[in-house]
């Protein structure tokens, strides 16, 4: 579960205000999702089935964001810097995906009331949790991409997948693992 220590409350970050609340909360603690948060150059050609697929991606991204939020209080030094930086990028992903759904006149998913993140107690356990959460997002994108009909939406999803793959690479390096363990990203490494 999301724990104390991060200078923004869990209610603010994961409350009913969804992605906008996440962005506002990050802004309040001096972080910003940055220009990528409102890039949304994606043509709104999503069909109903695409909205369902993109909402699945939003769910995966919220889970990853929750893992970062829960873990950040237990991190230090280079792990802390990376986690804060990547959390901002996860929020940007949520905003971009939510914008896609909204542009298609759909209703973007918000965060769940709680997430079962286990009970990581050490810095290493937190980084392992983040690693698993990022693998989950990669799996979600690999599942979603062939099911998205507009090419621009597939490209947008792949561009986020690649960023999450970069997150995994840094997390693995910080865990003492091979940062680029294979020629393809499969979410099992």
């Amino acid at each position: 579960m999301v724990g104390p220590g991060f200078p923004v409350s869990r209610r603010q970050l994961l409350g009913a205000s969804g992605a906008a609340g996440l962005a506002a909360a990050l802004s309040a603690c001096g972080r910003s999702p940055g220009p990528a948060a409102h890039v949304s150059t994606i043509p709104p050609n999503l069909k109903a089935v695409d909205v369902t697929v993109v909402n699945g991606l939003i769910d995966a991204e919220y889970f990853a964001a929750a893992a970062y939020i829960a873990g950040i209080p237990l991190l230090s030094d280079h792990n802390l810097r990376a986690a804060k930086h990547f959390l901002v990028q996860e929020v940007a992903h949520i905003l971009e995906l939510s914008n896609m759904v909204t542009a298609a006149r759909g209703a973007p998913h918000g965060p769940r009331a709680s997430y079962d993140l286990g009970h990581p107690r050490s810095e290493t356990q937190v980084m392992e949790l983040i690693h698993r959460a990022e693998q989950g997002t990669i799996r979600a994108y690999l599942d979603a991409i062939p099911r998205l009909s507009p090419g621009a939406a597939r490209a947008a999803a792949a561009s986020i997948l690649a960023n999450d793959a970069q997150h995994i690479s840094v997390v693995r390096r910080n865990l003492g693992l091979d940062p680029v363990p294979g020629a393809v990203v499969t979410a099992t490494e």
Partner: peptide, 8 residues
């Protein structure tokens, strides 16, 4: 997509 992730 898998190769793109690796290149990134």
């Amino acid at each position: 997509a898998q190769v793109m992730g690796c290149e990134a």
